[in-house]
């Protein structure tokens, strides 16, 4: 078989002017700005709600997992393994397209996406909380117990509040992942940022909507990434 390069390059189309026309066609953006903005709000709303619900569920899972009761820790472990060990894409497709087979029908695309993202992020949040809680010095639990508090009281009033501060940077990073993961929900048809960009791309034959969507993602993710980095540095300085 003759050798064939897996990539072809057409120098005649690789010019600044063409790049500008293909990727930065402001006309396409002006005409569809409202649609894109609305889709952006859906993306942000979906990520925010999933993060909040994921933190609640994740904290419960973390406490179940580190407790001494096997009845609680085993199911938490299975849950975390399943959701961390399978692709989010399968989880979303399953939740929307396969649960109706057993009588559970989710009507709203937004709600289907929210369920999938919440269940998924809870598994990651649980691991973040677990390592945060376990990073608190053992002596604190011992001291709490010695001064007459129960295990639950020590957890609630002494350990978890300290752990919370430590997990804020990794939780922020997790939130950034979640914002980007909302794009996977486009597969079931929800008109979040990516799907909306693809609908406009298909109608206008321009790649500019994809670039615009990427800029929207950057606009929200970059500040959060730098915020997380800053918080991490401050935390390290204080505990060093």
């Amino acid at each position: 078989m003759p050798f064939e390069w897996p990539v072809e390059f057409d120098p005649s189309r690789f010019s600044l002017q063409n790049i500008r026309e293909q990727y930065l066609d402001s006309g396409v953006i002006f005409e569809n700005f409202d649609t894109l903005l609305q889709a952006f709000l859906i993306t942000v709303g979906l990520a925010l709600l999933a993060e909040i619900l994921g933190i609640i569920l994740g904290l419960v899972l973390a406490l179940m997992k580190i407790g001494r009761s096997k009845i609680l820790s085993a199911p938490a472990q299975v849950y975390i393994d399943v959701f961390r060990g399978t692709p989010l894409l399968i989880q979303i497709i399953f939740i929307y397209f396969a649960t109706p087979n057993i009588g559970i029908r989710i009507e709203s695309l937004f709600f289907a996406g929210l369920v999938a993202l919440t269940l998924n992020s809870a598994a990651y949040v649980a691991e973040i909380f677990r390592s945060g809680i376990q990073s608190i010095d053992k002596g604190q639990m011992e001291a709490g117990r010695a001064s007459g508090l129960t295990y639950a009281q020590t957890m609630r009033h002494i350990i978890v509040p300290q752990a919370f501060r430590r997990v804020i940077p990794p939780l922020t990073n997790e939130f950034v992942m979640l914002i980007k993961d909302t794009s996977i929900v486009s597969v079931i048809g929800l008109e979040e940022l990516l799907r909306s960009a693809r609908v406009i791309q298909s109608a206008t034959a321009s790649a500019t909507p994809l670039v615009a969507a990427a800029v929207f993602y950057l606009a929200i993710c970059l500040p959060l990434i730098y915020l997380a980095n800053g918080l991490e540095r401050r935390l390290n300085r204080r505990t060093a």
Partner: peptide, 18 residues
């Protein structure tokens, strides 16, 4: 108007009543 990547996905959603 809900867009699907393949018509099979749309048929599936119709069958499911979504």
């Amino acid at each position: 108007i809900r867009t699907f990547d393949t018509i099979e996905d749309a048929f599936n959603a119709l069958e499911n009543g979504q």
